[in-house]
């Protein structure tokens, strides 16, 4: 049986831990509110952009030859894994990695070479453990999601797709459903087309495309728009990943704080029992001492 002093020390340490988890929960809650607002604020642009792409494709009359739309057979693919930098967010990253392993294994069974590109410290540690080809790891991608960074990353991916022989580029990130629920998702980034709602750009041809003027030319605009679509997809994944991170951390730290309460309650009972036992023992000693006289 641990001594009174031991139990007291342990109670103190649990209380300190609880202070930390509570503080982390509050910080995560504040960051989560901001990240959540950012996700919501980004939606109108995404929807309007989508509508514009559809109008453009319709105006082009269904035939839009672009290297970025070029579907080819998979021999070599690049999987980008977007993770958090820090832990303490429950199973967020490990769920993503578990699914990533499944994804990779399925591809490898089909004889496809899979290269990994980790974005985020956790993803970097994860890929270091596996013996895959790892490209250009990055950290702090989810720290402050910015469109500028998304554009830079998109240009990098497009370059790799066009010049380094990757037949497809996938992005694995955590889709944000709510503070309680985040779902790992693997989206095809390149070639563009499958990313939005599973539809391909090659829709049934409209005999007379709607009369839309396109400046400077449909070909040029489309090429740029497709690149921007890649950036948009990455930006959205960044926003959702950040919201997921803070949401998951908030939930994890909340349950950690509650668990600490439970542990404290049990230790207090133990402490009281031990104290009572000590008192009883002393009383017995006194009475038996008195009897001996």
């Amino acid at each position: 049986m641990p001594s009174l002093k031991d139990i007291r020390r342990r109670i103190g340490s649990v209380k300190n831990t609880q202070k930390i988890t509570r503080a982390m929960k509050l910080v995560a809650a504040a960051k989560f509110a901001r990240a959540n607002a950012a996700v919501v604020a980004a939606r109108p642009y995404g929807a309007a952009f989508q509508a514009m792409v559809e109008r453009l494709v319709a105006a082009a009359g269904g035939s839009v030859p672009s290297p970025l739309l070029n579907e080819r057979e998979e021999h070599k693919i690049l999987l980008v894994l977007l993770s958090t930098d820090r832990g303490f967010c429950g199973g967020l990253n490990s769920n993503l990695f578990k699914q990533a392993v499944q994804f990779i294994n399925a591809k490898r069974r089909d004889g496809v070479q899979v290269d990994l590109m980790p974005w985020g410290r956790r993803a970097r540690q994860f890929s270091a453990k596996l013996s895959y080809e790892v490209q250009d790891p990055r950290e702090k991608v989810l720290d402050k999601p910015s469109y500028g960074l998304a554009k830079e990353l998109a240009a990098d991916l497009v370059h790799r797709f066009e010049h380094e022989g990757y037949d497809r580029v996938y992005l694995g990130f955590v889709e944000f459903k709510s503070a309680m629920s985040q779902v790992p998702k693997f989206a095809q980034v390149l070639p563009v087309g499958k990313s939005h709602s599973g539809r391909s750009h090659k829709e049934p041809e409209i005999a007379f495309g709607p009369d839309i003027l396109v400046e400077p030319s449909i070909q040029e605009v489309l090429e740029q728009v497709l690149k921007r679509e890649v950036a948009g997809l990455i930006f959205r994944a960044m926003l959702e990943g950040a919201a997921s991170e803070h949401g998951a951390r908030m939930t994890a730290m909340d349950s950690a704080t509650n668990n600490a309460n439970e542990v404290l309650r049990r230790m207090k009972i133990q402490y009281n029992r031990a104290r009572q036992a000590a008192i009883t023992k002393e009383l017995i000693e006194i009475t038996s001492g008195a009897q001996a006289l």
């Binding site: 009369d211 839309i212 003027l213 396109v214």
Partner: peptide, 15 residues
Amino acid sequence: GYLGVLPGHTQLISE
């Protein structure tokens, strides 16, 4: 160069 859009403009997508 600059371009102006007034109500009733034809459908247009421009960079």
